[in-house]
Design a protein around this nucleic acid. Structure first.
Length: 230
DNA sequence: GCGACAG
DNA sequence: ATCTTGTCGC
């Protein structure tokens, strides 16, 4: 497993971090459809924290998009590089996630993040940030609506409704399991919202959350306890 | 000013 | 995110 250091010029204040977002936001690509769902590789990334020891562990798990079988995985650990501030989550996760992605023996294909992309106070969430830095197509699938408004989607799996920032649709509330709380899908980089939702449905044949994030979540937790046992 | 707020 | 037992159900 890779060990990472905090990058030299990583933002130290919220003001600096917001300035980085405002700068990088210009590079987001929103007019590409993205890879077709059900083909190629799809990679889930996630992180786990040990606040006591100031440690963060990241995992990247590559799945075959049609069988959802694991094709490759990698992990990385490092110091937590930024405090949790709503809207600045990416600065906590990105260095370690990048290291895990770099350690993969294969191209990741589409990357599925645990959080938001466009659905963000400055329209530049974790998935957008990771996409711009890697050039990879990315989407965000979050478990909560954050500050955004939405109407409850219809009961059947596959139903969806707009995730709204005022009157602007920044994502979709997507029902991945009948009558179960929806997930909140937003575009990261080089993927369309419709395609992002299609991928999310393809990744949730059984559970509310995408297989990608379920696998990545399990792996980064394992990496954390294997590396720094209680 | 106060509360809410991805993970 | 993380702290945490049992419990209901497939």
């Amino acid at each position: 497993m890779t060990t990472v250091r905090i990058p030299e010029h990583w933002p130290a204040t919220e003001e600096q971090a917001r300035a980085v977002q405002d700068e990088l936001r210009e590079r987001v690509i929103l007019d590409e459809p993205g890879p077709p769902p059900g083909t190629g590789h799809v990679t889930g990334v996630d992180v786990a924290y040990d606040d006591e020891r100031d440690i963060v562990a990241a995992a990247a798990v590559v799945l075959d998009a049609s069988s959802l079988e694991v094709v490759a995985e990698a992990t990385a650990v490092g110091r937590v590089p930024f405090p949790y501030v709503p809207g600045l989550l990416a600065f906590r996760e990105i260095p370690t996630v990048l290291a895990a992605l770099d350690a993969l023996p294969l191209p990741p294909g589409l990357v599925v993040c645990d959080g938001y992309g466009l659905a963000h106070p400055r329209r530049f969430g974790l998935a957008s940030h990771l996409g711009v830095l890697t050039g990879l197509p990315t989407i965000g699938v979050a478990k909560n609506p954050f500050t955004f408004a939405y109407d409850d989607p219809d009961t059947p799996r596959g139903s969806s409704s707009a995730l709204l920032a005022g009157s602007e649709e920044v994502g979709r509330a997507l029902r991945t399991r009948e009558a179960v709380k929806p997930v909140f899908v937003s575009v990261g980089h080089r993927v369309t919202l419709a395609v992002a939702c299609a991928h999310t449905l393809a990744l949730t044949p059984e559970y509310r959350l995408p297989e990608t994030t379920r696998r990545a979540d399990a792996l980064c937790r394992r990496a954390l306890r294997d590396t720094y046992p209680a």
